Amino acid sequence: MEPGSRRGHEQQLVNRIAVDAYHTAASLLLKSGDAPSAWISAERSMAAARRVGDPAAIATASRILTHAVAAVGHCRQGVGVAVRGADEVSAAVNSSQPDMVAVFGALLLRGAWAASAANDRDTASALLDEAERAAALMEESNRRWTAFGPNNVLLHKLTIALTLGDAGKALVEARRVKVRTLAVAERRAVFWTDVARALHACGRTQKATTALLAAEREAPQEVRSRRVVRELIGELLTRDRRGQAPLLRPLASRAGIPL
Score class of each variant (00 low, 15 high):
V103R: 07
R84K: 13
G73C: 02
R63A: 08
R84Y: 13
A59N: 12
R76M: 11
V89Y: 10
R44E: 15
R63Y: 06
E88P: 07
W39G: 11
R44K: 15
A92S: 13
L108S: 03
T60M: 15
L128G: 01
H74T: 08
E130K: 01
E88C: 11
D122G: 04
L128S: 03
V79S: 03
R63C: 08
A61R: 03
A82H: 08
I40H: 06
R121K: 09
C75F: 12
N119C: 09
E43G: 14
I58V: 14
D129P: 06
G80Q: 02
V72A: 02
L65H: 04
A106F: 02
E43F: 13
A59D: 11
S45W: 05
L108M: 08
D54W: 14
A126D: 01
N119W: 08
P55Q: 13
G105P: 02
G80R: 00
A92Q: 04
L108G: 04
A48Y: 10
S96H: 15
R84H: 14
V72P: 10
V79A: 03
Q97N: 08
I64G: 01
H67A: 09
I40W: 04
R63I: 01
N119I: 11
A91R: 15
A71Q: 05
D120W: 03
A56T: 10
I58H: 09
Q97M: 07
E130S: 06
V89I: 01
W113P: 00
R63T: 08
A61Q: 06
A91P: 14
F104L: 00
N119Q: 14
A48S: 15
G78R: 04
Q77F: 01
L107A: 12
V52N: 11
T66I: 12
A115R: 01
S125R: 00
G105I: 02
T123P: 00
D129H: 01
M46A: 15
D122M: 01
A114Y: 11
N119Y: 13
T123W: 04
V52P: 05
A102P: 00
A68K: 07
A118G: 08
R50M: 13
L128I: 09
A112N: 09
P55T: 07
A114I: 14
A118I: 05
Q77M: 09
A124Y: 02
S45G: 12
A71T: 10
P55S: 13
D129L: 03
L107M: 14
A61K: 02
A49S: 08
S62N: 09
A86Y: 06
E43H: 12
A71E: 07
A71L: 05
R76A: 10
G85V: 01
L127T: 00
